[in-house]
């Protein structure tokens, strides 16, 4: 008898679908964190496949900082409609207005960290017991340590030194009332895997991922878009360059890279040859050596 193997994307897809089906059955009220970025799009696509021809049993939750690229919001709404998923928006703006959080001040204000409060509030308000995210272990060194089923205590905190052993594919989603889980179906995918999968599945992405002309300025080695939320300070010169985004998040902390990659093929070639991590363009990760771990401990994505 010959050996049977599937290619590695098919293998990753099958594992992720297994994880998503476990979430649907082990939890009472799971949601899928949807930012309009390629990773969460990929997870939502997998969820669509895992439950077809039924509708995916998750609501899409977008934690909206109010500092978005308009392209992201357009894409988000169209996507939710296309897959027939219900969309819920948690608003950081609202958290600020109601006094739950204070807007950052200083030279590089960002609402990125504030999202944690809005996220945890939304999870509590709607009684979500699991939030599915698109984080991958290859993104960042603290994420490399995280389980697929990652437990959060009643304060939404992650305890990295005391994670549950996670063996084989026997995921343990048991918890006490008030606690919840974060689940990461793309844990074992790399950035390149995601791109190749997008290509293979012919998944449509927001236009921001492809090269376009945009007014940008340089700050701490990142190229930031000029928007109503990100304005150049003295000495920072705005110029039009051909750029694209490797990750899409809040406008204030998502840097662009100069690129001529206007098609998926070009982007894949660029990612395969890239010498900097995609999060290298994220100002939020560069605040300290363990800034991701610190944010995750408090309940960040």
């Amino acid at each position: 008898m010959p050996d049977y193997h599937v290619d590695h994307l098919t293998h990753l897809e099958a594992e992720s679908m297994f994880v998503l089906r476990e979430v649907a059955t082990q939890f009472r009220e799971p949601c899928l964190l949807f930012s309009g970025g390629k990773d969460s799009i990929c997870v939502a696509h997998l969820a669509y496949k895992a439950f077809w021809p039924a509708r995916m049993p998750f609501r899409l939750l977008h934690v909206d900082t109010g500092h978005n690229f308009p392209e992201t919001i357009e894409y988000r709404d169209a996507f939710a409609e296309k897959v027939g998923a219900r969309l819920l928006v948690g608003s950081v703006e609202e958290s600020i207005r109601s006094g739950r959080v204070n807007e950052e001040t200083g030279p590089n204000p960002s609402r990125n960290a504030l999202q944690t409060v809005t996220l945890l509030d939304t999870i509590e308000e709607h009684g979500f017991d699991a939030a599915i995210g698109g984080a991958r272990r290859d993104e960042e060194k603290a994420r490399a340590k995280e389980r697929v089923f990652s437990h959060r205590d009643e304060f939404g905190q992650w305890d990295p030194k005391n994670q549950r052993p996670e063996l084989w594919t026997l995921f343990n989603g048991r918890m006490r009332v008030g606690e919840h889980f974060r689940v990461f179906p793309l844990s074992n995918w790399t950035e390149l895997d995601v791109w190749r999968y997008v290509q293979r599945e012919e998944i449509e992405l927001p236009s921001l991922y492809f090269a376009h002309d945009r007014k940008v300025f340089e700050r701490d080695g990142s190229l930031l878009a000029e928007t109503e939320f990100t304005r150049p300070s003295d000495g920072e010169r705005v110029e039009t360059r051909t750029v694209r985004f490797r990750t899409i998040g809040d406008v204030t902390c998502t840097g662009a890279v100069e690129s001529q990659a206007s098609s998926l093929e070009d982007v894949i070639a660029e990612v395969a040859a890239a010498r900097k991590t995609e999060r290298g363009t994220r100002a939020d990760d560069r605040r300290s050596e363990t800034s991701m771990e610190d944010r995750k401990r408090q309940g960040y994505f």
Partner: peptide, 11 residues
């Protein structure tokens, strides 16, 4: 998409 050969593409 699926292949039959002797070697796993993922280790």
């Amino acid at each position: 998409m699926t292949t039959r050969n002797d070697e796993t593409p993922m280790l």
